[in-house]
Design a protein around this nucleic acid. Structure first.
Length: 261
DNA sequence: ATGGTTGGAGCCCAA
């Protein structure tokens, strides 16, 4: 089972990038974030023509998540508990089961600025996510919680930890809120295989980070022990940055061996 | 350098 997560920053602007990626890497499951497209305008056919079943949950301009799968998709869930009560809720969560994997695709709120309303919303969102994991998921199952978490967990996940000290994406309360999600029983899978610094998944368009490789690692694949044990490799596709008009995020892919019994 | 660029909307917002 090969699972990829990718914040595409606008699916319609990045459709050829996504199709090229599917053809080159053939993931079993591709989880997308920031599709920024309403469901009626989702480019379904072109992706289905690549051989994928698709679930999506989008809205105008902002947010939006989608899951593409070469296999049957079952038990689809949209939003955190209570989200569906609000028609204007930010569409950030899409879960499903593919074969024997429970998959949860997340676009965690950015938070914008430490201490602001959106920051408090982000911290509370992490708390609600942990409650959702406790209620619906089990550490004895194969679970992959993937997506853009908008948190660099440790200083080794930041190109310049001094410049980023206690700034948004790096502040201690954000790191604690995400660590509390990991404490459900999830591993930061990339760190099981690659402990070194210098691995980034996001480069700020504004600071030219894209050209200078000043990045942060804010996109993750988090796994329960049965899934962690089966992982054979995990990598960041930083080569996508060489494409014309790339997303500001790189895809992250994990390959899992078939679990017996 | 407290800057800068981008996507999608609609004459700015969020990132």
């Amino acid at each position: 089972m090969k699972i990829t997560t990718w914040n595409v920053n606008g699916l319609r602007a990045r459709l050829t990038h996504v199709i090229d990626f599917l053809r080159e890497h053939e993931p079993d499951v591709l989880c997308l974030q920031e599709t920024k497209v309403v469901d009626d305008a989702f480019p379904r056919e072109q992706l289905e023509d690549c051989g994928y079943n698709i679930e999506f949950w989008g809205q105008k301009s902002y947010n939006g998540v989608a899951i593409l799968s070469r296999h049957r998709v079952e038990d689809v869930v949209r939003g955190l508990p209570g989200d569906l009560d609000d028609p204007d809720v930010e569409r950030r969560v899409l879960g499903c089961i593919v074969q024997d994997f429970m998959i949860l695709d997340l676009y965690v709120p950015n938070g914008q600025e430490v201490g602001g309303d959106k920051y408090r919303f982000k911290l509370d969102w992490f708390r609600r996510l942990r409650q959702f994991l406790d209620a619906r998921y089990s550490v004895t199952e194969k679970v992959a919680v993937v997506g853009d978490f908008n948190v660099a967990l440790q200083d080794r996940d930041v190109h310049d930890p001094i410049a980023w000290h206690e700034r948004i994406l790096c502040s201690t309360p954000e790191r604690r809120a995400m660590q509390n999600v990991l404490a459900f029983g999830l591993s930061d899978l990339l760190r099981e295989h690659h402990p070194e610094t210098g691995i980034w998944t996001w480069w700020d368009y504004r600071t030219g980070g894209e050209k200078t490789d000043r990045g942060l690692r804010i996109d993750y694949i988090l796994t329960t022990p049965p899934a962690t044990a089966l992982c054979r490799e995990i990598q960041v596709h930083k080569d996508i940055r060489k494409a014309k008009s790339p997303s500001d995020h790189a895809p992250v892919t994990a390959v899992f061996a078939d679990g017996g019994a």
